[in-house]
Amino acid sequence: MYRIRVHGRGGQGVVTAAELIAWAAIYDGRYALAFPSFGSERTGAPVEAYCSIGDAPIRSREPVEAPDAVLVLDATLLNRPRIFTGLRPGGLVLVDSTAPLAVPGVPQLRTVPAARIALARTGRAMANVPMLGAFAAASGIVSLEAVHTAVGKRFSGPVSQANRDAVDEAYTYLTEAAREADEVDAPNATTASREVHHVA
């Protein structure tokens, strides 16, 4: 079973992100279960949501404590202790950011300017939908086609196409970033990045 935890703030589409990953996995023919950290959090408060994906019906309904992937829709949350708790060794970490970031102890952290992509494509700086494309590219757990289907069902009209374009751009960004990372020396990338310290 593959487990994802999405972090963000109320109003950033955290729950929608987890749900749409589940939709995509189901459209891929797999089983999935997504649910939020049920709270009465209001706009701006830290929230999280979970998604589990597997090849058999998912019976367990406990929150994701040992994620295979952590998606962060708001980089200002990175100094919170909870973000990387239980992350499996070598697990995927994707953060919305326009600049490269380095978090001590999380070398695998990758960034994607999801909110900037969304703003350009849809007029709203909602990092959640581009993050789906980035997740598809970085994890290979859900297909880009299934993400398209999920986004297409969730949004209608011109917004739907704009969001699918945003997914594509983030997908391409991650794919190209991966190729460049293979070509560029890792130390150079680290020098250019901003350090974020988090409380472990």
């Binding site: 987890a18 749900e19 589940a22 939709w23 189901i26 089983y31 999935a32 279960l33 997504a34 649910f35 939020p36 049920f38 998912i58 309904r61």
Partner: peptide, 11 residues
């Protein structure tokens, strides 16, 4: 069960 079932997305 509230939230655990009511708010969970699944097939």
């Amino acid at each position: 069960d509230g939230f655990v079932l009511t708010h969970a997305v699944e097939p």
